[in-house]
Amino acid sequence: MSAIAGNKAAEDPVLQWVTFRLENETYGINVMQVQEVLRYTEIAPVPGAPPYVLGIINLRGNVVTVIDTRLRFGLPTADTTDQTRIVIIEAENQVVGILVDAVAEVVYLRQSEIETTPNVGNEESAKFIQGVCHKNDELLILVDLEKMMSDEEWTELQGL
């Protein structure tokens, strides 16, 4: 019995997702890529940086580049609030921060619960969407952080 249960778990693993809010929608990123969540702190702009880079912050002596997630997703800009957070993530062997409206919770999703939707995207940002999942009476949009930036952009970030 336990062997069968083990096989089932292997076939349909439970994944943890950190959810955050942007423009009244809830997004999820793989918990394994999240290092920590920071309250909003002053972000120092970097002259000559690409538009999607808000600037850099000092994280315990390390410089971390912060990405403008709204701009990256093609969403309108918004002011920061008490709920604004910087989520420190690791993707493509780099540590970067993404600015979000708020961090919500950690949810457990079975792989089978994640559905793909017809992607009728006409913008590059559409490829960031890994899938959607109905959880807690709302649709969760799951984001593939690796695809949030092209290889050239990841390299460009490394050089900042």
Binding site: E25, G74, L75, N122, E124, S125, I129, V132, L139, I141
Partner: peptide, 15 residues
């Protein structure tokens, strides 16, 4: 639920 980056004729996903 609107999905970012989609064509203008896509309103989003509905459960």
């Amino acid at each position: 639920t609107p999905l970012f980056g989609q064509a203008s004729w896509s309103l989003g996903v509905w459960q």
